[in-house]
């Protein structure tokens, strides 16, 4: 029983990573119908920027803001820089390709992904980088039989906070309504006075920023980062997006959490080596019976 609970918490932790990355995929897909392959690399870039700030700026930052402030500063710097990169990528690589349709945009996104991944390799070198240890006091709490580390609690609280804010913005504010309208029907939304470019600007600011924050958290959690890790996380997050129903914001969050939990349960109860097979099998089974994902709406086909 306590193994199950511990694995659930581990699963929720990595699930919240997937969920935060999946949000970026889902927002972009919802509005532009584009699978943004470069999104995984925004995440990697955020992780590396956070690493640089923490390694080379810790002394300075912690002197001014204290330890927690220093880490917050690293996260914020990573988020802001990556969202700038996100906007630049959108302007240079995606915007000129939109008029041509969806498939050229996919190739362009793959090109952007290759570019970013190799830019990271050129800047930081091809070897693994290690996050500084002992940033967060190595404390853990005990509830009955279960141990939770302080870091896990911080990650869980922080990501749930981010997700709730995003959920609120998308579902409850006027701007969120504009985004949902643009996702639903972009031409009619434009007729209603919604500035499509602002919507794009917003999703390409927020998506990469969320990815970057996740990157910093992954760096702190696993301590080891590599320039290729964006592929793997990107693929998992994309799977989560589809599992929840693509373009559906709450769906992406739940998809990510469910995926993380399934992966941990599969790893501990079935086999660690086969956990990804387990995840993809579940995905395929879900899609066979619910072809538009767990929370996807059934859309009548236009003829």
């Amino acid at each position: 029983m306590h193994l199950l609970l511990e694995q659930l918490i581990n699963g929720l932790t990595i699930g919240s990573f997937y969920a935060l990355i999946a949000l970026g995929y889902s927002m972009v897909y919802g509005v532009l119908k584009l699978i943004n392959f470069a999104h995984g690399d925004f995440f990697t870039l955020g992780s590396y920027l956070g690493y640089t700030v923490l390694v080379f700026g810790t002394a300075l930052l912690t002197a001014h803001f204290g330890l927690w402030g220093g880490m917050m500063a690293a996260t914020v710097v990573a988020a802001i820089s990556v969202s700038i990169v996100g906007i630049v990528v959108e302007r240079l690589a995606y915007r000129p390709v939109y008029p041509a349709g969806r498939l050229p945009a996919v190739v362009s996104a793959l090109g952007a992904s290759i570019f970013l991944q190799n830019a990271i390799m050129v800047i930081w070198g091809p070897r693994y980088q290690a996050y500084p240890s002992q940033l967060i006091p190595n404390m853990h709490f005990q509830f009955g039989d279960i141990f939770i580390t302080l870091l896990q609690i911080i990650i869980l609280v922080f990501s749930f906070l981010l997700m709730s804010v995003l959920y609120y913005v998308i579902q409850r504010t006027t701007f969120g309504a504009a985004i949902r309208a643009a996702a639903h029907d972009r031409h009619t939304a434009a007729l209603m006075g919604i500035d499509f470019n602002k919507v794009i600007l917003f999703i390409f600011t927020l998506g990469p920023a969320l990815g970057a924050v996740t990157g910093v958290m992954v760096g702190m959690y696993y301590r080891q980062i590599s320039f290729t890790m964006g592929w793997n996380y990107g693929l998992k997050a994309f799977t989560a997006t589809i599992l929840g129903g693509i373009g559906n914001i709450p769906g992406a969050m739940f998809g990510g959490l469910i995926l993380g939990v399934l992966e941990m349960l599969g790893a501990s109860y079935i086999s660690a080596a086969w956990k990804d097979v387990f995840v993809f099998l579940i995905l395929i089974l879900v899609l066979i019976f619910r072809p538009t994902g767990l929370f996807g709406e059934k859309v009548a086909e236009k003829v």
Partner: peptide, 25 residues
């Protein structure tokens, strides 16, 4: 055979999944 009814990007992720399953296996 069981996945051929999926549309567009859903089919895309399932084929990605099949490819990954083969590689991991």
């Amino acid at each position: 055979s069981p996945i051929i009814h999926l549309k567009g990007d859903y089919l895309c992720i399932v084929t990605i999944g099949v490819g990954e399953i083969v590689r991991i296996a």
